[in-house]
Write a protein that binds this DNA or RNA. Sequence first.
RNA 1: GCGAAUAUGGUGAAGUGGUUAACACGCCGGAUUGUGGCUCCGGUAUGCGUGGGUUCGAUCCCCACUAUUCGCCCCA
Length: 454
Amino acid sequence: MVTKPKGCHDIYGTEAKKWQYVNKVIDSLMEKYNYSYIRTPIFESSEVFHRGMGETTDVVTKETYDFVDRANRKMTLRPEGTAGIVRSYIENKMYGNMPNPVKLYYNGTMYRYERPQSGRDRELTQFGVELLGSDDPLSDAEVISIPVNLFKILGLQEIKVKINSLGDNASRNNYREALKKYFEPHISSFCEDCQERFVKNPLRILDCKVDKDNPILKNAPKTLDYLNEESNLRFEKVKEYLKALEVDYEVDPKLVRGLDYYNHTVFEIEAHVEGFGSNNVLGAGGRYNGLVELLDGPKTPGVGFACGIGRLMMALDLENIDLDIKDDVEIFVMAVSDTEKNYAVTLVQSLRMSGFKVEMDYTDRNLKGQFKQADRLNAKYLIILNDKDLAKNEIKVKNNITKEEITLELDYLLYYFDEVLQDEEYINENEDLTSDIECSCHHHDCKCHHEEGE
RNA sequence: GCGAAUAUGGUGAAGUGGUUAACACGCCGGAUUGUGGCUCCGGUAUGCGUGGGUUCGAUCCCCACUAUUCGCCCCA
């Protein structure tokens, strides 16, 4: 049997319904924040990621899907969203032909060549935003508030927002040197990984799980002590705005992010749900004021975040959150004889065109089998066709919840369903805070896939 | 890249070196000659991840491979 590639998933059935629902909430929320949807290629010239994310980051050195195309161009399946979007921002000169700041959001698949485990796949879906062209601390705070509000809307309770500041480049470099000097006499007592980190990325020693209780680590210099005045002031403003936005956060001086492009604000949002694996970061991001320039664009500040939808789904499941998913059928039309079936075909078509969700049998089941099928599909109403009734221009309709059955005149049928089914919709709307969510796509038959392979 | 565990039908699973691979759910059919969801009866794996080996004989023992799951590195 041919199997799917390692670390990938087929998403279908109820699971797919949940993804569609979450995508709708995202689209609706981003509409309110006035971010515009952007779709960039799933692969880019390798250079985009090598220069954008940093040559030495593990993601680039050993976790990308690289290939050469038939003209020997080096290509890479995107491991994250930011670099490609910044490339697009520059290439399309958005700094000149869109209102500043440029506010973009994406929702699509990313690829990382890693060993899969809980909360980590080779193909993952990320939703994220990039806000380009503003250095105002307000933009940092607002960007942090977006995933926080998304999680709130979806009903997640057990989350924790951690923030930190790496400061501007000068602060960051000072800190890095101070940290190296501090660790140097002790480094041989640390774990092997830390010795490696000491050379490659000393900041990440702070994240070590093995030596996390080591007093040397606990007393290490903090990023915040090395912020210059300007950076410090900036961080204070971010925190002020977060309070104004009612985002609960926790300053974590040991929080450093792995990607080279971050400076100033960095943040992570963790799920604290029982049963979550070790990969419990739902979303993370920060400011990257040097990135646009690094990719040959004009000097432009930027801030953004990315959020793994797969992990978000895990969190929703573990918190037992029921999304408002409508997977039940409104009307099931039952027919056995040839004349009944012929009539049913036309009737089903007409009901569907009137806006109802309608099903019938496709496998020549007997009446009993059709009742069972209607139950499997959670049909609300059953239309039970009968040759004798049809001869009298009548039709039997059974409420599958109350089991009440009535006989209607054929001409009255559409009117009847308009009444009973509209009433139910109205009740649902009052109960559901997110029911005004509409898709932002412009296809009239859109199902919010965003063509990204969900 | 490193480490560990697992691998039986549509599903959950039991099991044994040797005729027909337990049980449950599901599904299909019948009792019910067109109104069910309860009950009863019947059907439902050319077969125990793939390839080798040991053996008179392997689903059960050994090896390799593959896949899945979990952890490390790293990361959402």
